[in-house]
């Protein structure tokens, strides 16, 4: 078991013939992801990387029965790609594209809520269930299969955490990068709930950042609803106040959303904090052993 995606997941790539789409489609195929088609308007009927290309999402879904789509199209066209995917009826959309106007995402979020659409991103590394399905841009080879669920607002810091887990002998059930933008699809709480219900996942690593209130909401959820242990790391303890740190999401406004207050909130709710970003894996190993003994992970 895993969450969101597995070996049976059929994936469509929106923007398959673009620079990023092409590069990552090849890597996803090599990893073993079942890419059943791609969409590039005007290139329907052709094949790309031996994958059929369609003009529209509607046609692509009808012909392939795909349940998930991944978006690599440029920011200007990404919002319409999101609506198109949702209207075509995929059950899950993964939006990798960065640089989309925030108000467009607010509008989509409102619409998607009414239409009951599930989505991850934007500005995210994607989702991977090791050994089965990689949807996104993360390096597949650092992952191993195992009992740890990983959720993160960051990209490369997630790779760092996964790499540490793998080196500690702890594989991963599913890793989800929810993205760094202020407004997006799945949040920490949505995914914590899924990991709690997933029998393969025995513990969760959560990687937060400065800005917003998602970490605080996650802390409350963990105390109230989760029996599985969670180790959290929050990046940005030394970020200067009120300054932009690359991610649109990583902004501190008005004294809320600081790393220190997020860490304190996690502690107050009984969540274990990895204080040192180099010890995320080790911290999880210790907690895992305390909870489950020396059994094979």
């Amino acid at each position: 078991m895993s969450i969101l995606v597995d070996q049976n997941t059929k994936v469509l790539v929106q923007g398959i013939t673009g620079k990023h789409g092409a590069f990552h489609t090849e890597r996803m195929l090599r990893y073993g992801t079942e890419i059943v088609g791609g969409v590039t308007p005007g290139k329907g009927g052709s094949r790309f990387l031996n994958v059929p290309v369609f003009d529209t999402m509607k046609e692509a879904v009808r012909m392939t029965q795909a349940g998930v789509s991944v978006i690599y199209v440029p920011a200007v066209h990404a919002p319409s790609a999101l609506y198109e995917a949702a209207e075509a009826g995929v059950r899950l959309i993964v939006c990798i594209t960065e640089g989309i106007p925030v108000l467009e995402m607010a509008r989509f979020k409102e619409w998607a809520k009414e239409e009951n659409v599930q989505w991850v991103g934007p500005n995210c590394p994607g989702i991977i269930t090791p050994g089965e399905c990689k949807i996104g841009i993360m390096p597949g080879e650092i992952h191993t299969r195992g009992p740890i669920g990983v959720i993160s607002r960051s990209g490369t810091l997630t790779y760092e955490a996964v790499w540490q887990l793998t080196h500690c002998g702890l594989g991963q059930s599913t890793c989800v990068g929810i993205g760094g933008d202020p407004i997006g699809g799945f949040g920490f709480v949505d995914l914590l709930a899924r990991f709690q219900d997933d029998p393969e996942t025995k513990a969760v690593v959560l990687i937060g950042e400065i800005g917003g209130t998602q970490e605080e909401e996650a802390a409350r959820f963990i105390r109230e609803k989760m029996s599985k242990p969670v180790v959290a790391f929050v990046a940005g303890l030394n970020a200067p106040e009120g300054r932009r740190m690359g991610h649109a999401g990583a902004i501190i406004t008005g004294g809320t959303g600081r790393a220190k207050s997020k860490i304190e909130c996690f502690r107050d709710h009984g969540v274990v904090i990895a204080e040192n970003p180099a010890l995320i894996g080790e911290t999880m190993k210790k907690i895992y052993r305390e909870q489950y003994g020396e059994q094979e992970s």
């Binding site: 993160s152 490369t156 810091l157 950042e209 400065i210 940005g236 030394n238």
Partner: peptide, 17 residues
């Protein structure tokens, strides 16, 4: 010099530690 905002922030944290 780091790639990714999250890792860059974590690197700053690590230097302080």
């Amino acid at each position: 010099i780091v790639n990714g905002a999250g890792l860059a922030m974590a690197t700053m944290d690590m230097i302080r530690l």
